[in-house]
């Protein structure tokens, strides 16, 4: 008995229609999902949340072709990997790909046959879901994860707010580059964020078309990295805006502070140190190429009024806007505008 037939009789019985001699040949021809008009199919898939829409792509070839012509609907993608697992985060849904090691085996799994233990587990969880969902697939963890990722980023209708590379193994990074290269990808995103442990991750720049901002988050090994080389890369140098997050309590080096369009993210307490205030003041005053310089607090809000007075006590307040100030760079004709917006402080050349 087919699923369709089973469901038909199940629904009849649930309605207390027990006539087993019912002649189905007189029923009109079924209209099925597969022969719904494209306009209707669009209405349905637009109402399916993006992660489920992504799963729909794996259902059948016609559906895959239909969905590949539409924006997958994700806003944010985050990827990371370690030696045991690859993690893809689509908006609020986390998908982990891993083969459990002996230590990871839970009490419930110990009875499981060996051949099942070596399958890759694909585990999905999200803020809207009550429990994890898990599938098991034969193959290589990284390749399975990357195959899924490529299905999403390979769609040229995809428009992201943010793509983020978290901590990655060099092997997975290399595999990503190979795949993106083969597909000649140019992923459209407003923001692109790198967690920089080594230079390898920066090779990914070529696969992105970044509309607004590139974010570089350095790790504690930042001193061992060729910072000048990183900020000299074409994609970085020409970025519309570059945001830099240093490890805890570190102020970015002068080469970064001298960039023309820069946002630095610092801890609130750091401006209590005079040497930090001096360093920022000098960077703002001496940078000849300065177009935009923003200071943003890492956590929470802060009264930027105090900060601006600390940095430039002689700045003149705009008579029409109490949040805007002006000051002249000594020994030059250059005037800079300082603007206080919530917990950010913006400087720009006038």
């Amino acid at each position: 008995m087919s699923y369709q037939e089973f469901e038909f009789w199940f629904m009849r019985f649930s309605r207390k229609e027990y006539d087993l001699n019912y002649d189905r040949s007189r029923d009109p021809v079924y209209r099925e999902f597969s022969n719904l008009p494209d306009g209707v199919l669009s209405q349905i898939v637009d109402k399916v949340n993006p992660v489920d829409r992504f799963v729909l792509q794996k259902v059948s070839k016609p559906l895959r072709q239909f969905l590949s012509a539409r924006n997958p609907g994700f806003q944010k993608i985050k990827i990371s990997s370690d030696e045991n697992r690859c993690t893809l985060i689509y908006d609020n849904t986390i998908i982990n790909y891993y083969i459990p090691t002996y230590n990871m085996y839970s009490f419930f799994d110990t009875e499981e046959p060996e051949e099942l233990r070596n399958l890759v587990r694909v585990n999905r969880s999200g803020s809207c879901e009550f429990m994890d969902k898990e599938a098991r697939i034969e193959g290589d963890t990284s390749k399975i994860a990357l195959h899924d990722l490529a299905m999403v980023v390979g769609n040229n209708k995809l428009r992201l707010e943010m793509f983020e590379f978290r901590s990655m193994t060099p092997e997975f990074m290399e595999l990503i580059h190979q795949t993106f290269m083969t597909q000649s990808l140019k992923i459209q995103t407003d923001k692109l964020k790198f967690f920089i442990q080594d230079l390898k991750v920066m090779e990914s720049l070529q696969f992105f078309d970044v509309k607004e901002e590139i974010i570089l988050e350095f790790w504690t090994n930042w001193k061992t990295l060729p910072i000048d080389k990183i900020i000299g890369l074409p994609g970085i140098k020409d970025a519309k805006m570059l945001k830099v997050i240093m490890p805890y309590a570190i102020i970015p080096p002068d080469s970064i502070l001298g960039l023309p369009r820069i946002t630095i993210v610092i801890q609130q307490y750091q401006l209590r140190k005079m040497e930090v205030v001096e360093k920022l003041r000098n960077a703002i005053l001496t940078s000849k190429s300065l177009e935009i310089f923003n200071i943003k607090w890492q956590y929470g809000r802060h009264e930027m009024d105090e900060t601006n007075k600390l940095l430039f006590p002689n700045a003149v307040e705009d008579s029409r806007n109490p949040n805007v100030f002006y000051f002249t760079v000594p020994d030059t004709e250059r005037t800079l505008e300082m603007r206080v917006v919530d917990h950010e402080l913006y400087f720009r050349r006038r």
Binding site: F33, D46, K47, V48, V55, L56, E129, A135
Partner: peptide
């Protein structure tokens, strides 16, 4: 359409 879309929630291929 919403009813059909809801059927897809959390399902495997």
């Amino acid at each position: 359409c919403k009813k059909v879309a809801n059927m897809a929630q959390g399902k495997t291929p």
